[in-house]
């Protein structure tokens, strides 16, 4: 998204580009006050609607007993057993693996499609505005609706995707995308990537446009082919943006649930059971909220540590 400006700022730092806030003793008190006043609504909202739910979930995860009734939760004894159960359950690790594969593959797919499309429409060419808009069209389409469309396209008997693949000779027999455990995850990834790539295109496009054409000209003069140009000009310019795009897409995929659940409900036989689906099953099919909450806390901890590990990268950009 915004990284352009930052890339540019880094590039132009020596020219005295804009700087972020500085400590100004004379104004500091007033500034601090204003700073908190401006932050207050967002902060208050986050505290109320995020901190409280997290507190509830952690609280629930420490309770002994299988309940769905919130008002009864406070009366249950405290225990760490739920974590013991969750961590020793092979299904947790199975789900974690599926989540990891799903997330990584979705991120890789989205960033590749995003990069290819961004590179194609980077340069000025007649009609670019419309081509660019067309490429970004999946973005405003709600994921739930994209999902319905893909379920129909990937149908095992009448799906048009099978027909096309047969027509061009890639496959002989229809693939039952969501039925076959080997292909179910691939099937679920298709709508996920389709919904996720436009944001990557946008972010990368924004940062690509800050690369002066002269750099490419210079590279050409030096005899660099497309591959070398990409390695030495394009990639250095977009890598920070790409990392941020990957973080955003990754976080979104890791916690998302609608695509998988709407299509396969975690099946067949657990082949697409991500952590989000496992949590849903524990809470809404087995009615074991404490177990679901413990699994949720584990999930949050994992996502949180991934985010923390990436903090230095993000800080380079923002702090």
């Amino acid at each position: 998204m915004t990284l352009v400006t930052d890339d540019r700022r880094r590039a132009g730092a020596h020219t005295g580009g804009p700087r972020r806030s500085r400590w100004r003793p004379s104004l500091s008190t007033r500034n601090n006050l204003l700073s908190y006043v401006l932050l207050a609504p967002s902060l208050a909202m986050s505290l109320v609607f995020i901190a409280f739910p997290i507190y509830m979930i952690v609280n629930l995860s420490l309770r002994d007993g299988k309940t769905m009734i919130m008002s009864e939760v406070g009366g249950l004894p405290l225990t760490l057993d739920n974590y013991d159960t969750v961590l020793s359950d092979p299904e947790t690790w199975h789900s974690l693996r599926i989540s990891a594969v799903y997330t990584l593959a979705a991120v890789a797919g989205a960033i590749v499609v995003g990069l290819v499309t961004a590179l194609l429409i980077r340069r000025r060419l007649p009609g670019r505005r419309w081509l660019r808009t067309l490429i970004l069209i999946p973005w405003p389409i709600p994921g739930s609706i994209a999902t319905v469309g893909f379920v129909w396209m990937l149908d095992g008997t009448y799906g048009v995707v099978n027909y096309l693949l047969r027509a061009i000779g890639v496959i002989d027999e229809n693939i039952a995308w969501f039925f076959d455990p080997q292909t179910a995850l691939i099937g679920v990834l298709m709508p996920t990537v389709w919904s996720a790539y436009p944001l990557c295109t946008l972010m990368l496009l924004a940062s690509l446009q800050s690369v002066p054409d002269e750099l490419y000209e210079a590279a050409k003069v030096d005899g660099a082919g497309p591959v070398l140009q990409f390695r030495h000009v394009t990639w250095p310019a977009v890598q920070n943006t790409a990392v941020l795009a990957m973080i955003v897409t990754g976080l979104w995929t890791f916690t998302t649930f609608d695509f998988v659940y709407a299509i396969t409900r975690g099946g067949p036989d657990g082949a697409t059971q991500t952590l989000a689906v496992a949590i849903y099953n524990q809470a809404f099919r087995f009615f074991d909220l404490p177990h679901a909450s413990a699994l949720g806390v584990v999930t949050m901890a994992l996502a949180g540590s991934a985010l923390l590990a990436l903090f230095p990268v993000v800080r380079r950009r923002f702090f």
Binding site: F179, G267, P268, D269, N281
Partner: peptide
């Protein structure tokens, strides 16, 4: 859920 998972294992 367990029965459905087992059935899917049989079918696939």
């Amino acid at each position: 859920t367990r029965i459905i998972d087992a059935m899917m294992r049989l079918l696939t």
